Amino acid sequence: MHSNYIVIEGLEGAGKTTAREVVVDTLKALGVRDLIFTREPGGTQLAEKLRSLVLDIKSAGDEVIVDKAEVLMFYAARVQLVETVIKPALASGAWVIGDRHDLSTQAYQGGGRGVDRQMLATLRDAVLGDFRPDLTLYLDVTPEVGLKRARARGELDRIEQESFTFFNRTRARYLELAAQSDDILTIDATRPLEEVKTAIRAAVTTWVKEQNP
């Protein structure tokens, strides 16, 4: 059954916050009023605590978070958000605009970390079933561009401090996954800002009209 769950994805510094503003303005211009916003990891009290554990460099002291533990914390936060916030909102008829969802884990952990991709797919299916976003906007930037923007914002979190090699692997996996799904639209976010905004408006407008002919 069709619902209205739009997710914005991309590397650090891809422009997800700006993209969300454009998506919201576009939806409102199309007559959508009931909007709910989420972010991952996070979005509930428990999920925000897990976010702090997995992203805050100081939260685990000197203990190194192993890759599989990182994956499991992301999924614990995700399923809590999906079951207690996203699904009820969609069931009520609201539109949900998400800052990241499962594609991030498939790209960052499956690509960047090199975690077994079949394990990730199995875990996703076990935890989320067939629940997927209706539309994902993937904002594509090179790590050089994205991390320069991210550093300009201030202190980087634990994952943002990874190497360019890590982010190149992550980006490659994003692009690979985006090419495999009609529900993922790739936006070249290295272009001038107004061009990126125009591309997002066009993508969202076309998608909404296709869903509601």
Rank of each mutant, 00 (worst) to 15 (best):
Y5S: 06
R158D: 05
V23F: 00
R100Y: 02
L128M: 10
N168D: 10
V32A: 03
E160C: 11
A19N: 03
V141K: 03
T190W: 10
L55G: 03
T190Q: 12
S92P: 14
S92W: 02
V24P: 15
V64W: 05
A69E: 07
L27P: 12
D62E: 14
D157Y: 00
V141Q: 04
A69P: 14
G10H: 00
E40W: 05
G154C: 11
A150S: 13
V85L: 12
V64L: 14
I86G: 04
P133A: 01
A199R: 09
R158S: 05
G146D: 03
L81Q: 04
L103Y: 06
V64S: 10
G13Q: 01
V196Y: 02
I6E: 03
V145C: 13
G111R: 01
R153V: 05
L156E: 04
E160I: 06
E162P: 15
F164P: 15
E155K: 10
L147F: 06
D56Q: 05
Q161V: 09
K49G: 11
R201T: 10
R124S: 11
E210H: 06
N168L: 14
V127K: 00
P88G: 03
G43C: 05
T142H: 01
S59G: 07
D67Y: 00
D34V: 07
G98Y: 01
H101I: 10
L175E: 07
T44H: 03
F37Y: 09
G13F: 00
G112N: 01
A89Y: 00
A89L: 04
S163A: 08
E194P: 11
K209Q: 07
F166V: 08
R117E: 11
D116H: 02
A150Q: 12
A121K: 10
V23Q: 02
E48S: 07
S104D: 01
E63Q: 15
T198Q: 13
V64T: 09
A189P: 15
A189S: 11
S52I: 13
I6V: 11
T105D: 09
L123G: 04
G111C: 09
G129A: 10
R173E: 07
V66G: 11
N212F: 10
D116W: 02
L27F: 01
F74I: 14
G146S: 04
Q45H: 13
T44I: 06
I159N: 11
Q118S: 13
G98M: 08
L123N: 01
H2S: 13
L135I: 01
A77M: 07
E144I: 11
D62K: 05
G129P: 15
K148N: 10
R132S: 10
L55F: 02
A69N: 07
A126L: 08
D125T: 09
I36E: 05
G42F: 00
E70Q: 07
D157I: 02
F166M: 08
A91W: 11
A202H: 12
V79N: 02
D140Q: 05
L147R: 03
A152F: 06
E48P: 14
V196I: 14
R33F: 12
R171C: 05
S181E: 13
T198N: 13
I65Y: 04
R191S: 12
L50C: 06
D183W: 12
M73T: 08
S163L: 14
G42K: 00
D182G: 13
